[in-house]
Design a protein around this nucleic acid. Structure first.
Lengths: 231, 231
DNA sequence: CGTCGATTTGACGGATACGTTAAATTGATT
DNA sequence: AATCAATTTAACGTATCCGTCAAATCGACG
């Protein structure tokens, strides 16, 4: 059977497996774009990662630009899907926020390629994102989820009123991403291992503390108007 | 004299101005590396921005790598210098922190090229930073400044004890940078203008609120152990 | 005025990048 | 087994990119 197998392998060196090849190419493209950015990424390098040729990539995805757009849509789709499984409604508001923060922090850490592609797209000034029709409707749900938790918290008197869910999401994303995006400069300069081997739990708790401190209602303090000043 | 001047200009089409050329090249390199990252940046493009040739750049700075290293050291030197002028000692702790946050936020916004180069260096996994001898000692002062303010605040009872100045700096940097680094993806997806034309004052205040909420001492709450759990 | 060293340029060579096209391979169908 | 369409490859052409080197330019100084 081993002989047979090796004979088959010789004959079928290129079994036609369009779906598998397409997926393989996408994975390779994600890795390459994440590692070197849009301009730094090389179609040859992607082809090398797949054991196929550059021409085949073109056959499936068209030119570099549209391959990259496919990557963009794929990785954003993945995180949206993961967020959809969060299941926050049965948690008290503070726990729900902590859950979101921890999920986000861990997701970024475990899917560094996602973060790096977001960075790459920003380096490209959002050029490709703008041209992707699919991206527009893609990321509203997380804001709605946060808004519902905030509303519950305000109703229960544990969160301060007037909070903007987009701004809260921004803070969570910013604090979580920084640990990944800036691990090399910040980590090197301040001697902190900010990768998965550093003290992850402690950094994650810090982020949750920061966010929850901000949301917490403190009746004794002067209330700061967080909405835009309308004179 | 004007005739003389124009005659001179014709004759001196290439006046030898080593210092000026060196500076011009550095500025052009900063712009190009900031715009397209290390791998995306092209020596030809840098040369084009300077009205000189690629060979001259090599004459002054050596190869692309060492030019980039010079850029890195220069932009980090600039922000360190600006931070040194902060003058926090005569401000009460909360005001001092607010001052740091606002300075940082504004600096990132006004010197987008700095942020973009930090991003680029992280995309390169800190490869060049590691090879720069000058970078090691360069960024300690900001931590000391924050530490002193925190100590004063704890002594006065307005800040909670056990705070890690590096973690505080990290939060300030993360929240400030995000508004620049992610303006294209975040801004596009959530319809926020996060550039200098958005509601800058409001976003800056939000960051200051977040940081100050975190630092504030709240005696009635259960104290959370922020140091690593020993045992 | 002529020489010298510092500065600047034009041109070359080798490497890599990207997309296309014509041909080859293969699984399925008749 | 012959054919067909989908899949895959090899090779080509053009463009760009980077570092070097020999030669040209220029300011200063004797």
């Amino acid at each position: 059977m081993l002989v047979n197998s090796s004979a088959r392998r010789a004959a079928m060196r290129k079994p036609k497996a369009p779906a598998a090849n397409r997926a393989r190419i996408l994975r390779a493209a994600i890795a390459e774009f994440a590692a070197r950015g849009y301009e730094g990424a090389s179609m040859d390098a992607i082809a090398a990662r797949t054991r196929t040729t550059r021409a085949l990539i073109n056959y499936y995805f068209g030119a570099k630009t549209s391959l990259y757009r496919a990557v963009l849509e794929h990785v954003y789709g993945e995180i949206r899907e993961a967020e959809a499984r969060l299941d926050l409604e049965h948690l008290p508001p503070r726990e729900a926020i902590r859950r979101i923060v921890e999920f986000t922090f861990d997701y970024y850490l475990a899917h560094e390629y996602f973060v790096r592609i977001v960075v790459a797209e920003n380096q490209a000034r959002g050029r490709h994102l703008r041209r992707s029709r699919a991206m527009r409707s893609l990321n509203r749900p997380i804001i709605d989820r946060i808004a519902r938790v905030l509303a519950r918290g305000v109703a229960e008197g544990v969160f301060r009123p007037g909070l903007d869910p987009v701004e809260v999401h921004k803070a969570i994303a910013a604090l979580g991403m920084f640990n990944v995006t800036n691990q090399y400069t910040f980590g090197a300069i301040f001697q902190r291992d900010m990768g998965a081997r550093g003290d992850v739990a402690r950094r994650r708790d810090t982020v949750a503390d920061i966010v929850l401190s901000y949301l917490t209602h403190r009746p004794e303090e002067e209330t700061r108007d967080v909405r835009s000043a309308s004179s």
